[in-house]
Structure formats: structure tokens, C-alpha cells
Amino acid sequence: MRPVIQVSGLRKSYGRTVAVADATFEVNEGEIFGLIGPNGAGKTTTMECIEGLRKPDRGSIAVLALDPFRDVYKLQNRIGVQLQQAQLQKRIKVWEAVDLWASLYKKKSVDGDRLLDQLGLTDKRNAWFMNLSGGQKQRLFIALALINDPEVVFLDELTTGLDPQSRHAIWDLVRGIRERGKTVFLTTHLMEEAERLCDRVAIMEHGRIIDIDTPANLVLRHCPERTVVIEVSDPAAAEPFNLIPRVERVERNGSQFTIYGRGDLVTEVIHFLSENRVRVTDFRAILPNLEDVFLKLTGRSIRE
């Protein structure tokens, strides 16, 4: 796999605030890569340095083998950008924005009307930007980021502030971008979003990258603990639960058993239950997620 973004030793301060202390990572072609971390971690700053909008204090960045600061115009023709806090002119119409954007790129742009159609904005073509809902604005920004058929798409906190329904719709759109062979680099402070969407994530805190891997591997490496809670109709059948591989401890509370273990505990328990024909009246697996990984790595919750 070819890296399309290479960042090494990136540092950027605003006056005395060190926004990014030291960041090194690569993004591969065709993947959805997420930079995750709490607000203020330095995600936006990192992304804007990569987009050529900010000049790093130190470190090197290559995007599609270009220097984003020196070759910013060449680069902007080949990438698509959605910014965290951007707006458009209040009274610009949807089609006008798409039409303007389409005229800016050297390469022939994709069909704007088709793009609006794919993003469900066709009946908003003549609406003013200020009259769009939050989800519609974000979809328009996605359209603008895709209008030049870019090789890499940057999405900064794309779904922050949206209701769950719009959020799921937008996740599907982002997966669609990857399906078309593009690379997606996104930031989010929503762990669920990272877990559902990203092929690989880099966890950032206080301007540093603390780990990079697939969401599943991160959880497996940092939070291997697994818990299964089951209720059985015949408690006697539960006697040999201790013998299941990966089990470390079993607690009993009436007919309810809580089984603690690590790794692929859940698979092992299911296997045991079916092998021994244990009748189960309730089954619940408690799996750690990226939020737990973050808590483990930093000692604080990402929501703080």
C-alpha cells in the first residue's frame, strides 16, 4: 500500500500554546484514517497543516508527494477539504456554491447536479445556505469537497452537532467515498464514529500521537478484558464454567453468572454453551471500546 500522506515530527504553536507538539504518522491509499482525541488535542491544527492552510513550525509533511505549503495550489487541485468551522455566504444558493467550486479547478469537475442528487440535495438547489439544516449544510460541504474528484478527502468533525439519524446517513456517504477508491482523512472526538467508520485511527492527546492501529487491534491490545453475563435455567449446568478457556473468574448471583476473561472469551463461551447444550435464558457480552482504550491510555475520559 502506498502512503498518500506522510507526516513526520510535526510541531505547531500559536504564540505560547503548543497545539501540536510532535506528530508522526502515515495514511495509506484507499483507507479511511481517523485522527481521534478530545477537543483541543490538536487535530484541526494537524489537519490544516496537511492541507497547506497553516505553516508548521517544524517537521515535514508530504501529501501525494507534494509539500503542502510550497505547492499549495497544485495540492488544492487534487484534494477535497471540509473545514471544522467554516460557513458559506448566508444568501448563496446551493447550486451557486457548487457551480462556483466546479469552476475553480483545473481538472474537469464531476457533474454537480449528479453530486447533489447523490447527497440528497436536489430539492434544495435553490435554497440559501442560511436556510439549510445542519445536516444539509454538512452534505453541501461534502459535495464541495468532492466536486473536483479529489484523490484525498479531508473531513474535520464532519458530524459534530448532528442528530443520530443524519450522522448515520453521513457515515454511509463517507464509506461511499472510500468505495470510489479515494483516501479519507478525518478527525473526530466521537469514539463511536471512529469505531464504525475508520480502517485505522491515530489517538491524539495534548498535541501528541499516543498510538496508531485499527480500532479492533487497539481495543484488543489495550483492553483485552471481556465480560459475559448469562442466565441459565439450570444452575447445575453452570458448574464447569471455570474450565472454559480464557476464563479468569466467574461470579454467581442466583441464576445469573458473570464470566470474566480476556481475548476471544465470547467465542469460547458460546462454543462451550452449544457443545454442552446449556439452556440460556439471557446472554449479554460486555465489550470494551475505543472510549475504554482512551481512558486506559490517558487516565481520563474523552468526554471530559
Binding site: E51, N77, A86, L88, W101, L104
Partner: peptide, 17 residues
């Protein structure tokens, strides 16, 4: 107003000079 709303920044993140 355009600066405060991030409109200038958004326009600058295009090939517009």
C-alpha cells in the same frame, strides 16, 4: 463578517488565490 464566519478561510482552501 466573512472572516468571523470562516467564509474567507473556506474560500482560501480552494485553488482561489
Amino acid at each position: 463578517i466573512y472572516r468571523e464566519g470562516g467564509i474567507l478561510k473556506r474560500l482560501r482552501a480552494t485553488p482561489l488565490r
